Amino acid sequence: MPTASLLHRFLDELMPLRPRAVWAHGSFAGGDYQEGRSDLDLIAVLPGPMRPATVRRLVGLHRSLRAVPLAGKLHCTYLTPATLEDPDRSHLTWAHGRVLRRPVTPVTRRELHDFGRVLHGEPPAGLLPAVPERQLSDFVVRDQRDYWRPAVDRARLWRQDVWVDLGLLTFARATVTLRDGRLISKREALAELPALGAPVEVVEDTARRRYGAAPAPAGGDWLVRRAELTRAYLAPAIDALVAAYG
């Protein structure tokens, strides 16, 4: 199985850096993983500190994996014991074939505690602080209000599959988290969308592309209509969610 081979190679290459833990979150941990479609989202806790020589070794490690099947979908954020606690702090991350810096958000932290998959070393509960309910809900509201709501007004973005899919699915997941206090997968979020009033033809389009056989590329007229339907739904839906829970 390509995913298993990739993880074995990655962990083998990482061991000289003596990681205290390597965890999977997202779809691979939550049971919604589709090989070849889903990203493989990982967190590694290194002994620290993150010196320039360590960064160079990590970059070299990921570059060495480029020829391995599915390596482009492997994303890993690197923490140290001294940088674990702050959910707003950005950490060295390899994603989309390059080095980034991004935080390990309260949602990701809750995922790790609730259903994180231990690939090596200590479990999340032994290293990562618990996520208070208020911290989780505040983050979810802020993400909808400050990131997704302004994005809805940028019309050109919404002709892309990724914006339509993630915009709708993130909204559904945010709604369930705020309403019920639990995290759900993207597949579960897709099932929630009709009851939340999302446009049925857009939800069906997303389901076909994400979980069905690969469809023919969408035509221009549908891309325009899909974008209009999605934006017309999300703008008031996000406003209402933020007003209710913000």
Rank of each mutant, 00 (worst) to 15 (best):
S27A: 13
A189N: 10
R56C: 00
D32T: 00
R37P: 00
W94Q: 04
R37W: 12
E204M: 03
G36T: 11
R9S: 09
A237V: 03
L166F: 13
M1P: 15
L17N: 01
V140M: 14
L183R: 09
L119M: 01
W222K: 04
V68C: 13
T93C: 06
L193Q: 01
D221A: 13
A240Y: 01
L223G: 02
V107P: 02
Q160M: 11
A218F: 05
E122P: 01
D221I: 05
A216M: 12
G220N: 11
V200K: 09
L234K: 01
L136D: 08
G48D: 03
G219E: 13
L17F: 00
L136H: 11
P87V: 12
L84Q: 02
A216E: 15
A53M: 07
A195C: 06
G116S: 06
R20H: 13
V59W: 01
R226W: 08
A155M: 00
H8D: 14
V99P: 07
C76G: 03
A24V: 06
M50A: 09
P199R: 01
L70Y: 06
R209C: 03
L92E: 05
T77R: 05
F139N: 11
L46N: 00
R225T: 08
V131P: 09
W94D: 03
P236Y: 09
R57C: 10
R156G: 04
D239H: 11
R51P: 02
I184D: 13
G220D: 15
R156Y: 13
